[in-house]
Design a protein around this nucleic acid. Structure first.
Length: 487
DNA sequence: TGCCGGTTAAC
DNA sequence: TTAACCGGC
């Protein structure tokens, strides 16, 4: 049968994948699979919005491999994945014309640019007689679901968490379908290689595969490993960057290779009916993700504007040299440099170290948090439009329920507290690997003979601190005090 | 999900 | 001399 002879009822359903690159717990997929019609799964590489690519470079590396994995997984359902690029509405209209589709389904996304696109697409397609249906599943609950007693949105985490807990269990995940009906005629697809998502020269992602396996299968495996292992010590272990105590699920979540509902419900029943401290702690992190989307939904400018406009007059410094030192992990503070180099090598940084590195940029260097947000967005494989922006504002003090600005991390003390033996530093700052643990977080205070024995000449093998923390702290407090005191 | 400096109390 | 505590930033 050819396209032109296909009868009504055999018109395919377009299944539009976005940041939901999975078969498990996928409601749009479920709707397509149970429609009784052939399904044409598609992925559209969308153009830049707001002068920023939708994805940073590290996440494009991930996307490449994730799409390859999804293509393969769809193959096991006797289906496939059509790749197109361009303005989504134009691409969809073309695909509708090519396939005769009368229905399109997708899972909702919650970043402002995505919402704007989807709202327009849905309206225009519906005006043209196309059935366009969207589904939930990227969050545990829709960002509009929880309301304060006064009917507004939450501005602090603890009441949000309480309301979340009291509002009932998140929906249970659904299983992947076993089969999809293939169309009689597959539309043309771009090749994945033609999108050039992988870095070529220099290949800064060369070590990513040692750390990461993108794709749904690896995500589910990682979840199982975490539940069976590290979750048991999560509440304490999560703060120690040299300990494998975190889930490592963030990049999988960021592109929707695994659903938060799947994760949430996987943590039940480990120790009877009552969740342990470790489980609660972990679930609270999932709910922080929800809280970040809650903020972004109700304050769409979150990436570019201070949530608290009191910070609009903050006297940030422009300092390209120091910004570059921070980006390259050459600040002279080992815990900061280890974190920034882990970010570059693995596309990921341990959460505790993210806070330390972010505090250093904002408070020790007085560089605008937006510079940090942009760098993380480009280099993190788990970059998320809500979490990345909300968390930078959290450190800066400008965000919702943010850390007070006067909470300034001392990078030496933080290193000594959370990386006491310096194992994390030695891994990512190898030039310090032979330094005594006593000085591993303060090489600038090490006696000459200690440095000599470790083969280190400060200023040559490893930088002296680019700022004196005690001085920088005072400068930061003074800068903060210069703001109008209205809250 | 701080740090700092001052005070107090025990030795 | 040091640990514990506290207020201020």
């Amino acid at each position: 049968m050819t396209m032109t002879t296909s009868k009504k009822g055999q018109n395919p359903v377009l299944l539009w994948f976005r940041k939901d690159l999975r078969l498990d717990d996928n409601h749009a997929l479920q709707a397509a699979a149970t429609s009784g019609r052939p399904v044409v799964p598609i992925y559209i590489r969308e153009p830049e919005v707001d002068g920023n690519g939708p994805l940073g470079a590290a996440q494009e590396w991930w996307l490449h491999h994730s799409l390859a994995a999804l293509q393969k997984a769809l193959g096991t359902l006797n289906s496939g994945l059509i790749l197109r690029q361009g303005d989504p509405l134009a691409v969809l209209e073309k695909l509708i014309a090519e396939t005769g589709a009368e229905t399109i389904v997708w899972n909702r996304r919650y970043d402002p640019a995505g919402i704007a696109v989807d709202t327009q697409v849905k309206k225009i397609l519906r005006d043209n007689g196309i059935e366009a249906n969207s589904f939930a599943g990227q969050l545990l609950h829709e960002p509009t679901r929880l309301r304060t007693g006064a009917g507004g949105h939450y501005k602090t985490y603890t009441p949000f968490w309480r309301a979340f807990e009291q509002s009932g269990e998140p929906p249970f995940p659904i299983e992947a379908p076993e089969k999809l009906l293939a169309p009689n005629h597959w539309p043309k697809s771009d090749t994945l290689a033609s999108w050039s998502l992988l870095p070529i020269r220099p290949n800064w992602a060369s070590e990513f595969p040692d750390t990461w396996t993108p794709g749904e299968a690896a995500a589910l495996e990682k979840l199982k490993d975490f539940i069976d292992g590290a979750l048991d010590d999560y509440a304490v272990g999560r703060d120690f960057p040299d300990t494998p105590a975190t889930s490592l699920l963030s990049p999988h979540l960021a592109l929707g290779e695994i659903s938060p509902a799947r994760i949430w419900h996987a943590t039940r029943g480990l120790s009877g009916k009552i969740p342990t401290d470790d489980i609660i702690r972990f679930r609270k992190e999932l709910v922080w993700r929800e809280f970040c989307y809650h903020q972004l939904f109700h304050f769409p400018k979150l990436r570019t504007a201070n949530w608290n406009d009191r910070y609009d007059d903050f006297p940030w410094l422009s300092d390209a040299r120091r910004l570059k030192s921070w980006q390259r992990g050459q600040t002279g503070y080992p815990i900061v440099d280890a974190g920034m180099r882990q970010l570059w090598r693995h596309g990921w940084m341990h959460n505790r170290v993210r806070m330390i590195a972010a505090s250093f940029l904002i408070k020790d260097l007085l560089i605008d948090w937006r510079e940090g947000e942009a760098w993380f967005r480009d280099t993190l494989v788990d970059a998320d439009p809500a979490a990345n922006t909300a968390n930078w504002q959290w450190v800066a003090g400008s965000g919702a329920d943010a850390s007070p600005f006067f909470r300034i991390f001392n990078p030496v003390l933080q290193g000594e507290k959370f990386d006491p033996d310096g194992g994390y530093v030695r891994t990512f700052v190898p030039e310090l690997s032979k330094l005594d643990s006593k000085y591993i977080h303060r090489p600038f205070e090490a006696p000459d003979d200690v440095l000599r024995r470790a083969g280190i000449e400060l200023g040559k093998h490893y930088p002296r601190p680019i700022v004196d923390h005690a001085v920088a702290r005072q400068r930061a407090l003074a800068a903060h005090a210069s703001l109008k005191n209205d809250g």
